[in-house]
């Protein structure tokens, strides 16, 4: 059971207080998009062995959404950050670069 820190309310708590919602930074495709784009948006998800950016919600706490960067192999948590963004913050990416050299090529 993971320990998770909510960047919205600042609380660090057991995983049971949170809920994971899969891959982060998915682009919503809507009317006017191609079938392929819709398929990608609705169904295609990464399943990396290693660095993964995820959507989480502090379900039984402040109720707010956030993102988490995590290693699916070792369960190392690189950091949590706002859900109101299109990509992970640079300082977090730099931290992951330091911890997992070459991870960008792997994903």
């Amino acid at each position: 059971m993971l320990i998770v820190s909510c960047p919205n309310c600042g609380i660090t708590a057991e995983e049971t207080e949170f809920h994971a919602h899969g891959e982060a930074h998915i682009t919503r495709h809507a009317v006017g998009s191609s079938d392929d784009q819709m398929e990608t948006y609705l169904f295609m998800r990464k399943n990396p062995k290693g660095v993964h950016f995820e959507r989480w919600r502090h379900q039984y706490g402040c109720g707010k959404w956030f993102h988490m960067a995590r290693c699916t192999m070792t369960l190392e948590v690189f950091g949590t950050y706002s859900a109101q963004t299109y990509s992970p913050p640079d300082d977090l990416l730099a931290r992951i670069d330091a911890r997992r050299p070459g991870w960008r090529e792997a994903t």
């Binding site: 993971l2 320990i3 290693c71 070792t74 369960l75 190392e76 948590v77 911890r99």
Partner: peptide, 8 residues
Amino acid sequence: QPPKGADG
């Protein structure tokens, strides 16, 4: 190769 925690 020990078990690793949240901070790696």
